[in-house]
C-alpha cells in the first residue's frame, strides 16, 4: 500500500511538473514571440523552440524525481538500455524524415532567395520570366527565416538527444522511461514539423503567386502541399502528445 502511494505520488508530481513546463513554455514563447516581432516578423521562429524546450525541461524535471535505489541489498540487470529502445519507432522515423526534408527545403530556398526591395537578403523569390521581365514574390523561406530555424533546430536536437540519453540511463520502470521518451520525441517533433509546415506552406504560397514559374514551379507546388499537410498532421500529433502526458495513441 505504501509502495503504491509513493508510486502514485511520484506519478502525480511527474505530471504536474510536465504541465508546469508546458505552462512556462507557453508564457515564455509568447514573451519571446512578441519581443522579437517588434522589429521583424520572426518571433514565431523563436517562440516554437522556446515552448518545445520548456516542455522537455518539464519532462526532465519529472525524471529527476525518480527514486534512487535504497536499502542494503540492490540488484541491477546487465542489459544495456539504448535510446532507440524507448523512442516510438514509426513516429521517430517519420520525424527524422521530416527533419531531412526541412533541411533540404531550407537549403534550396536559401539558394533561390533574393534580397527584397529594401535590400534585405533572403526574403523573397525573384524569377526571370520567358518574356524577359522579372517577377518577385514573398515572403520566401530564404536565409533570413531559414537561419533562425536551422540554429534553433540544431540546439533543440542536441538538447533532446541529451535528454533521451538521461532518461534511458535513469533507474525506474520501463513504462515510465517509454512515456518520458515519447514526450521528448513529441516535443522535438514539434520543433521539426512546425517549421516545416511554415516553410513548406510559405514556399508553396509564394510559388502559387507566380505566374511564370513554369513546370518546375508547378511541380514544386505539388510536392510542397502534401509536405505541408503531412507536417500539419504531425504538429497536431506532437502537440496532443506533449500536452496530454497520459495519452495512449497508436504510433
Amino acid at each position: 500500500m505504501l509502495a503504491f502511494d509513493a508510486e502514485s505520488t511520484a506519478s502525480a508530481a511527474d505530471r504536474y511538473l510536465r504541465w508546469a513546463g508546458l505552462l512556462i513554455g507557453a508564457v515564455a514563447a509568447r514573451a519571446v514571440g512578441h519581443g522579437l516581432d517588434a522589429g521583424e516578423d520572426v518571433g514565431i521562429l523563436y517562440a516554437i523552440p522556446v515552448f518545445g524546450l520548456c516542455a522537455v525541461a518539464g519532462v526532465l524535471a519529472g525524471d529527476a524525481l525518480t527514486a534512487r535505489p535504497r536499502g542494503d541489498v540492490r540488484t541491477a540487470g546487465l542489459t544495456p538500455r539504448r535510446v532507440r529502445d524507448y523512442v516510438p519507432p514509426r513516429m521517430t522515423l517519420l520525424l527524422l524524415g521530416q527533419a531531412g526534408v526541412l533541411v533540404v527545403l531550407l537549403a534550396v530556398a536559401a539558394v533561390l532567395a533574393s534580397p527584397d526591395d529594401m535590400g534585405r537578403a533572403g526574403r523573397i523569390l525573384t524569377v526571370t520570366c520567358p518574356d524577359g521581365r522579372t517577377a518577385s514574390t514573398g515572403p520566401w523561406p530564404g536565409l533570413f527565416y531559414g537561419l533562425p530555424v536551422l540554429a534553433s533546430f540544431a540546439v533543440s536536437t542536441a538538447g533532446c538527444l541529451w535528454s533521451l540519453t538521461k532518461i534511458a540511463r535513469r533507474p525506474g520502470d520501463e513504462k515510465t522511461r517509454r512515456d518520458r521518451a515519447l514526450a521528448i520525441v513529441a516535443a522535438w517533433g514539434l520543433l521539426v514539423s512546425a517549421p516545416l509546415l511554415g516553410a513548406a506552406s510559405t514556399a508553396s504560397g509564394a510559388l502559387m503567386d507566380m505566374t511564370c514559374d513554369g513546370t518546375v514551379g508547378r511541380l514544386a507546388t505539388w510536392v510542397l502541399w502534401p509536405t505541408a499537410l503531412a507536417a500539419l498532421v504531425t504538429v497536431a500529433w506532437c502537440l496532443f502528445t506533449v500536452i496530454s502526458p497520459k495519452a495512449r495513441v497508436r504510433r
Binding site: P69, L78, P80, R169
Partner: peptide
C-alpha cells in the same frame, strides 16, 4: 555490458 553510468544509477 551496460554503461558505467547506467549500472551505477541502477545500483544507487
Amino acid at each position: 555490458l551496460p554503461t558505467v553510468r547506467q549500472l551505477a544509477a541502477d545500483l544507487g
